[in-house]
């Protein structure tokens, strides 16, 4: 197990370098950050060159990348367009987005598994057809449509929830955005759980559990669900990264000042340190979540052993 973890951590290094370098190149291709600073006016060439030198922009792209990586490993993520250090933005943005992600994740896991279990146990019946139709609809409608529609009806028209999230992003305000963010994943989780449950419900060991005289509740939770959730957990784990990235759209709709908001600002103002810095952290979270899922897999299924 320990060796496996070390091997996996080592495998992450090239993935980390590859993804961050790609992002670095893409952001570089966005345009000239110095020109962006001056807006519509053309900058004075001498001043521009000076800024360029100060920002290490007068070197080749690979050299810039290496320089940048050295900097971030000393904790210096550069400065944002507003003049604030990027780390300061991260300090305010990540807690908000993580909170939003956790709310969305909880909704996705509980509602998705619940609906999937319901549908899987009543395969071919009304509840099953209902869940299938509902999830198809949710998957087919883009997040920004779901977001604005729910915001308008629940927030503006019926006053069930706050249409925008207040400063500091209290959990209560995050439920509606969390639902919007979770919607598509929730539908996938429901469908995945449904298939898995329906398949396992016919398994011999479930019949054994019934023949042992176990109460139905125990048969379902201990025997059926435990086995059915193995593929679902894999999806949920890898989706944590997806949720944080997906928050870009949701955060715009509900005016949440999280990672998505900062990334959007960074792109809009052509500020490489903000964009690359935030994405780098997201990459690390994504990799960590993936490793966690693989380790969890071995816990859930004893037939899998890592050496």
């Amino acid at each position: 197990m320990g060796r496996y973890v070390i091997r996996r951590l080592l495998q992450m290094v090239p993935v980390f370098i590859g993804t961050t370098f790609l992002i670095f190149v893409m952001v570089y291709a966005l345009g000239d950050p110095v020109a962006a600073m001056f807006g519509d006016r053309a900058p004075d060439p001498a001043t521009a060159a000076q800024i360029r030198h100060a920002m290490y922009l007068d070197h080749s792209l690979p050299a810039q990348y290496v320089h940048y990586m050295k900097q971030i490993f000393t904790g210096n993520f550069g400065t944002a367009a507003t003049g604030q250090p990027v780390t300061e933005l991260m300090g305010s943005a990540f807690p908000v987005t993580i909170r939003l992600t956790l709310v969305a994740f909880a909704i996705e896991a509980v509602a998705g598994i619940g609906l999937g279990l319901l549908a899987g146990m009543r395969r071919g019946r009304f509840a099953d057809t209902g869940v299938l139709a509902f999830t198809l609809l949710v998957v087919a409608v883009p997040t920004f449509v779901t977001g604005y529609v729910l915001q308008y009806f629940l927030g503006v028209k019926w006053h069930v929830a706050n249409p925008a999230v207040a400063e500091g992003a209290p959990i209560g305000d995050l439920i509606l955005p969390g639902l919007v963010l979770a919607a598509v994943s929730l539908a996938y989780v429901a469908r995945l759980t449904r298939t898995s449950v329906a398949e396992n419900a016919r398994a011999d060991y479930v019949r054994t559990a019934v023949a042992k005289g176990l109460p139905k509740r125990r048969v379902v939770t201990v025997h059926l669900l435990r086995n059915s959730l193995i593929p679902v957990v894999t999806f949920l784990g890898t989706d944590i990264g997806g949720l944080m990235a997906g928050a870009v759209v949701t955060e715009r709709i509900f005016n949440i000042h999280g990672v998505g908001y900062q990334l959007y600002q960074g792109i809009l103002r052509q500020n490489p340190p903000t964009v690359v810095g935030f994405v780098t952290i997201l990459v690390i979270i994504f990799l960590a979540a993936n490793l966690l899922v693989d380790l969890l897999y071995a816990v859930l299924d004893p037939r899998i052993r890592y050496a």
Binding site: R207, T208, A211
Partner: peptide
């Protein structure tokens, strides 16, 4: 009580 045919599939694979 009942004893089933194929013990491998009749026992739950993820429980001791």
């Amino acid at each position: 009580a009942m004893i089933f045919q194929d013990a491998l599939s009749s026992l739950n694979p993820v429980l001791s």
